[in-house]
């Protein structure tokens, strides 16, 4: 892995480790309700300053923290037109099937990419039970690298297919 991306991912990981200190906190507005404050933003005193980690203009990660929830928004790099449509397709595909991931947001926030909301409840129930599994799959090394890798592999496959089809077409003339 290149040094620059390692630094970027380490920075995200460290920020997340610091930010993931969530606790159960009932809603201050509605009785017997427990809502993710990072989404509702009802009480400013429960929100922390958002952190934007940027590798470059195309690759960014916005981490918004509150007392009982955390929201991570990712912008994945899109070097050219083909990568752009592949990234859009892939992220849309994931967002449409958000229920499979439990923490994925259906609609990305701010950065046109992917958003993940971790509430205290999901953190305790889903994540804390198997930290060793989920942590690498969270938008630290694992998830980011996975998406990048998948998109570059897709791009390569599309180009390879194109080359094969072009070869087959030109074969007809010989």
């Amino acid at each position: 892995m290149a040094t620059s991306i390692r630094l970027y991912l380490t920075c995200i990981r460290n920020t997340l480790e610091a930010a993931l200190c969530l606790q159960n906190f009932p809603c201050q507005e509605v009785e017997r309700h427990n809502k993710p404050e990072v989404e509702m933003k009802t009480s400013p005193e429960l929100l922390l300053n958002p952190i934007l980690v940027c590798r470059n203009e195309a690759e960014k990660c916005l981490i918004e923290t509150s007392i009982n929830s955390l929201r991570i928004s990712l912008k994945v790099k899109q070097a050219d037109e083909l990568e752009n449509i592949l990234t859009k397709k892939f992220l849309r595909f994931l967002s449409m099937r958000a229920e499979a991931f439990q923490v994925l947001r259906r609609k990305p926030v701010q950065l046109q990419g992917l958003s993940i909301v971790i509430s205290e409840e999901s953190w305790v129930k889903v994540v804390a039970g198997h930290v060793h599994v989920v942590i690498p799959k969270l938008p630290c090394d694992g998830f980011c690298v996975d998406i990048d890798k998948e998109i570059s592999e897709l791009k390569m496959s599309v180009n390879t297919r194109g080359r094969l089809v072009a070869t087959e077409f030109l074969k007809q003339f010989t």
């Binding site: 037109e81 083909l82 449509i85 599309v158 194109g162």
Partner: peptide
Amino acid sequence: HSDVIIATAFFQELMDVGSSEKWAKA
């Protein structure tokens, strides 16, 4: 738009393959 991008990638490959020596007869 996505079709345009995929097709453009194909046309570029077609040009690359066609300009190679192997396909000089095409």
